[in-house]
Design a protein around this nucleic acid. Sequence first.
DNA 1: CCGACAACCTGTGAGC
DNA 2: TGCTCACAGGTTGTCG
Length: 274
Amino acid sequence: MPELPEVETTRRGIAPHVEGREVVEVVVRQPRLRVPVPADLVDRLVGARLGPLGRRAKYLLVPVEGDEPGTLLWHLGMSGSLRIARLGELPRKHDHLDLVLDDGGILRYHDPRRFGFVDWLAGSVEADRRLARLGPEPLSESFDGERLYRLSRGRRLAVKPFVMDSAVVVGVGNIYAAEALFLAGIDPRRSAGRVSLARYLRLAAAVKEVLAAAITQGGTTLRDFVGGTGEPGYFKQRLNVYGRHGEACRRCGGELRLVTLGQRASVFCTRCQT
DNA sequence: CCGACAACCTGTGAGC
DNA sequence: TGCTCACAGGTTGTCG
């Protein structure tokens, strides 16, 4: 599910219910996530207060204040979601973790495929090896077409997996990579090293445009994604290519084609994307 | 260094 | 209706 817009939607949705609250109870129903839930997580959280929520790439950052401060590094994987439940609301299947808060709200983690995880960071967040190698945020000024051009020289990799590489730019997953390439008019199969600077300038602008628009729409709900307040995202209606193979291109009417690039399904228009 | 690929896990939808 | 198979929003590790 979650690419950057979905994680950001989640952050914004749960923040008002979480920030400044004290954790009064932690319920771990399934500790076996992608990374096992830390054995001491319950002890660390109960009685602690939560700080202002952050996000880096597709990671949600939850500061934990108190005697031994730290940060929860939370990743939603492919199928994870976080929402605010009310006290007494029964957990459903795959509701793996609850943080019960002092106002009766529950931060509840749901993740059928269990590709997501929660980990405890004691020291500086940026020192974590998972975050240390990440490229710039796509909506920041340090991400632009010139960076894409510079990093792509000599790369034979297809441009779509190239732009999905988190060392190049973070937060661009399979949906938004496909959408940005469509907006930029670039064939996703083209070698990254053979895309011109002019095209990369268009691609960077398209990445920023599509991510910003998706955040405005509350993300993309394909199956069961919900933001922090339990509502789905509405960007699916705006998708031009993702999941539409065999259907007509909204721009030229041609049939959208499906190929596999970097083990990921990739849909594009052979007429509009060259 | 680069790129291809498998692995992690469960649910769903297509096809038979 | 029921079975089997391929595939799904991400990331990491291994191998050549």
